[in-house]
Design a protein around this nucleic acid. Sequence first.
DNA 1: ATGGCTGCAAACGTTTTGCACTTTT
DNA 2: AAAAGTGCAAAACGTTTGCAGCCAT
Lengths: 143, 143
Amino acid sequence: MIGFKDLEQKLKDNGYKTTKQRRAILQVLYENVQRFISAEDIYNKTKEKFNTTNFSTVYRNLEILERLGIIHKTNIEDGISVYELICHREHHHHIICKKCGKTEIIDFCPFENIEHILDDKGFEATEHKFEVYGYCSKCKSDV
Amino acid sequence: MIGFKDLEQKLKDNGYKTTKQRRAILQVLYENVQRFISAEDIYNKTKEKFNTTNFSTVYRNLEILERLGIIHKTNIEDGISVYELICHREHHHHIICKKCGKTEIIDFCPFENIEHILDDKGFEATEHKFEVYGYCSKCKSDV
DNA sequence: ATGGCTGCAAACGTTTTGCACTTTT
DNA sequence: AAAAGTGCAAAACGTTTGCAGCCAT
């Protein structure tokens, strides 16, 4: 597991300054480990911590964090992107609760099962996506 | 494999009228079987066939076609949706070429491998996505 | 004091909508 | 004749950008 200090350090190491807004965004992400949250949610929660924060600032920082490999961006539903702190170093996939947004890591990657298929086809894979959507044990009772 | 007539019939059966625009959109999708294309591409190609077609008409029809299970919608890249005719009845996954948009079916579904994991967690899965992106044999040489 | 960082407002690209008109049935 | 479908223009949506001023270093 990665600590909050590590995150701030990684930013510093890469020449980024420590601003109040940036720290607040990082805190929000840190408090939502294992949960995909939207830019809007991040913006709102960041505002609670430090009320002069702007959408541009949020997006600009999310872009930096993604570039540094600190967060992971995906499109769960049409059009909207969601973000999550990367707290595990290994490649992995997710189970995602459509109600509360909670994610869990699946300890299985289907890629190795199809590598030979891709080789046969002469297909050069660059990325793959495996995600399971549904309702977690907590949420499935009250759907 | 599904024929073009079957598609028109399915629309009729569900109470949708056969208009020139709708037929042109359907034709474009039919000519691009096994290829994800964007709404913009569909719009342009539809215009070639029948030049009074509008973006609203394209989007409205794509929505209907998706609801009827005739096409499949995904987000390959940020923000833009791509569409593909569903021409196989069985559940399956895709290999997608990022250059030409060509898709191929992967004869493997990872879901069964993780069912027991989900059961253990008490997670109720409703959907899953497994997609492999990269470059097909034709495109990989000229990237 | 320099550079990066921010807030603001305006622009962006994709998609959706309201409404008057047209077409299919 | 009725219902559904269309085109148009305008709006909505999430996201990005240019710029002037601000703040961390």
